[in-house]
Design a binder for these strands. Structure first.
Lengths: 209, 209
DNA sequence: AGCTCCATGTAAGTCGTTACATGATTCA
DNA sequence: TGAATCATGTAACGACTTACATGGAGCT
């Protein structure tokens, strides 16, 4: 359950209302673990019931909002989760399932799939890269709060781990783009020389940027 | 819904019982879309209710088994699905979520995470490569049935698309391994020179194998 | 007065996981 | 006769999606 622990981590930067938390979530965790606001509110209530966060009702004009803060139990759970080695979930990739059965479609349909795949991951890659820029400039509200709450000696590591994660996502996106492009080449070869194609292997990620 | 369509594709190779289908599934689709047998039986019943497959009760000693075959509607649905361009599902990666928060753990804990990540994807990579070998040798029972049911001119494409998909998975696994290794280097730099680290970018997948 | 943002949820449904359940056949 | 394999499910639960629902606050 990454949602639960990501919320604990966000709350470690200081007390926050559900709404603020959801907005911060959208700008950070959402890149690697998307969730709707409704799910966040639900999870916060569950965390509260589990004693990992505590909520305080804060007046807001005539209405009220709820400010959540991390409890000692929540903090312990966060650290337990970070230390715990978890198996990655199994691969579950619709695009690869479908690619396995492209023979049921026309070459043109296969091309469209690969082009859409490439376009999607190009957009993702750009999104990740913009986020890396923000992180490196320490230019997000959440990161500033987080750094302010942490000892200066830890600042580099806090930023570095996040940047490393997003660099990894960029590399993944590039692998997808490369796969789609080789897919397009394969479709061309199959369509033009249906009896004499060769499938070149995908090279290892080696060399400089 | 990839499960549904993968089952339709498996059935295109000819009538099969649920059990056989589940076994074939384990040796093929399961690489990219895992499912329990119980889920496959449930989905087959649902496909039957939707008119996409038809079942025939076959005697087996005193008991019976059900042999499923693709209907015209099922075939049409399979082709519709292949032609349909679908957005890839959003990234949802526990390992990357956690890596974003490695500052909550010790360097040693971070190392263990990265090592487990590397080991996992090395095993996956080897699994995929073994499957590619099988495909290239046309050495799986299912592939042989599938090829036997298809015109000879289509054989190359049938194999080539599958090989391409698994090559892509190998490339993904390699990207994960590379990410984990750079993660290990990062932990070392942070632990040894906490104030003077540099995060090298991950190079593009360029160059020869 | 109306729009945007703030703020918090409920409800229904889908998909998938985990555990449980049962019994026949085949082969050593 | 006992184990492995064949064969087919049900039940409960959890996570997430989609849609719906409501109302205050702040600004123009």
């Amino acid at each position: 359950m990454s949602l639960r622990h990501a919320l604990l981590a966000l709350l470690d930067a200081g007390p926050t209302t559900g709404y603020e938390l959801a907005k911060q979530f959208d700008q950070t965790v959402d890149y690697v673990w998307p969730a709707q606001h409704s799910q966040i509110y639900t999870e916060l209530r569950r965390l509260e019931a589990a004693g990992m966060v505590a909520a305080e009702t804060v007046p807001r004009g005539l209405a009220t909002k709820r400010a959540y803060r991390l409890t000692a139990e929540g903090d312990a759970e966060l650290r337990r989760w970070v230390a715990e080695v978890a198996e990655p979930p199994p691969v579950r990739e619709p695009a690869y399932v479908k690619a396995t059965y492209f023979e049921y479609g026309t070459p043109q349909q296969a091309r469209e799939q690969f082009r859409a795949h490439r376009a999607h991951y190009e957009a993702q890659r750009d999104r990740y890269e913009r986020h890396i820029d923000q992180l490196e400039r320490r230019d997000t509200a959440l990161l500033r709060r987080r750094l302010a709450a942490a000892p200066a000696a830890a600042h580099d590591a806090i930023v570095a781990y996040k940047v490393h994660a997003y660099r990894g996502l960029v590399a993944r996106a590039r692998a997808e783009i490369s796969w789609a492009e080789r897919g397009l080449e394969l479709v061309d070869r199959l369509a033009e020389h249906p009896a004499a194609y060769v499938i070149p292997d995908i090279p290892e990620p080696e060399g400089e940027r």
